[in-house]
Amino acid sequence: MAVSDQSLLRQAAAAAAGSQQYPAATLYLVATPIGNLADLSLRAIHLLGLADALACEDTRQGGALLRHLGLHKPLIALHQHNEREASAAVLARLAAGERVAYASDAGTPAISDPGAVLVREVVAAGHRVLPLPGPSSTVTALSVAGDTAATSFAFAGFLPTKAGERRSALQAVLGVEGQSQVVFEAPHRIIDLVALLAELAPQRRVTVCRELTKQFESVHTAEAATLPAWLAADAQRQRGEFVLVLHAQAPQAAADDELPPQALRTLALLAAELPLKQAVALAAQISGAPRNQLYDAGLKLRRGADE
């Protein structure tokens, strides 16, 4: 980026975010792009200009980000292996009344990234911590999953690498009702993960996000049973960083012939306005309940209405 462009960008950031208060002696957690540099917010750009120092997971990446903006700041390396020790350098600057920004390599700090220990240490020392929201691969993946059966979500992150522990962890994640579960995976383990998903929960819908926000990003939603073949069909699908959304498991009925009350209410509302087959299909999509049970329940509703 040319110098004039950098100046114009910082001016635009100041115009958009300059009215906000940025108190001194404060740690600022800055969310950074997960793949597309254009996702860096104007407020983050303005704050990085105000900061007296930047603590970062990787000083090479932190330095490159500052150079892109035409900024020069002292850098503090703070990563998972030295977070407690490096926090002391941040605390010293805060005690001197400085503003310190912290950015992990990508996304929001302390979400499967360093930052939580730093926040705890700063708060314990009596200093303020303020967040600058922005990119998050977890929320980005959830937004395109379309999991209508979920009432909440949980972040599972990276599963254990040992086979037995991995299986147990995935079984536990799959056993939770009503929640979307977000799982991270590296390219060299993605084949094993989808194979395990296909074995343990073949009918579970899964959204596979690859290289989110980058040039060759892809999003694919399908039943777990189909994923090994889909992945094997194109070697490109096995490359990059992965975020998987395991769609929510519908609540189990109390008995084989009993549907959850919410599924019955949804079916009744739809069946009052639509043909039974269409009402059942929509109710199954919304509630996650089995179509055959919904169809039987719909027939009962129709018979009751005719009597």
Score class of each variant (00 low, 15 high):
6 Q>L: 04
7 S>Y: 08
8 L>S: 12
13 A>D: 05
17 A>Y: 14
18 G>T: 02
18 G>W: 02
19 S>A: 13
26 T>E: 07
26 T>Q: 10
28 Y>N: 11
29 L>Q: 05
30 V>P: 12
30 V>I: 12
31 A>F: 10
32 T>R: 06
33 P>Q: 07
37 L>D: 15
38 A>L: 08
38 A>P: 03
38 A>E: 08
40 L>P: 01
46 H>W: 05
46 H>L: 07
46 H>P: 04
48 L>P: 01
59 T>L: 08
66 L>V: 02
71 L>K: 08
78 L>I: 08
82 N>A: 11
83 E>P: 15
88 A>D: 15
91 L>Y: 06
93 R>S: 07
99 R>D: 05
100 V>R: 01
100 V>W: 00
102 Y>A: 06
103 A>F: 06
106 A>T: 11
106 A>M: 12
107 G>E: 08
107 G>W: 12
108 T>Y: 14
112 S>I: 04
114 P>A: 10
121 E>T: 03
130 L>R: 00
131 P>C: 08
131 P>S: 03
132 L>A: 07
133 P>L: 10
133 P>F: 09
136 S>C: 14
138 T>S: 14
140 T>A: 15
146 G>K: 07
151 T>K: 13
154 A>L: 09
159 L>H: 05
163 A>L: 13
168 S>D: 14
169 A>H: 09
170 L>A: 09
173 V>F: 07
175 G>N: 12
175 G>T: 13
178 G>E: 13
183 V>A: 12
184 F>L: 08
185 E>I: 04
185 E>A: 07
187 P>G: 12
187 P>R: 09
190 I>K: 00
191 I>P: 08
194 V>G: 15
202 P>L: 09
203 Q>C: 01
208 V>L: 08
212 L>G: 08
212 L>V: 06
215 Q>V: 14
217 E>F: 01
217 E>T: 03
219 V>N: 11
222 A>F: 10
223 E>A: 07
223 E>K: 06
225 A>T: 10
225 A>W: 15
229 A>S: 11
232 A>E: 13
237 R>W: 14
238 Q>N: 11
239 R>D: 13
243 V>C: 02
247 H>R: 02
251 P>V: 08
259 L>S: 15
261 P>T: 02
262 Q>H: 05
267 L>C: 03
268 A>E: 04
270 L>D: 06
273 E>I: 05
279 A>F: 02
282 L>H: 00
287 S>G: 02
288 G>H: 03
289 A>V: 00
291 R>Y: 00
293 Q>T: 12
294 L>H: 01
297 A>R: 06
297 A>Q: 10
299 L>M: 15
300 K>Q: 11
302 R>A: 13
302 R>F: 12
305 A>D: 11
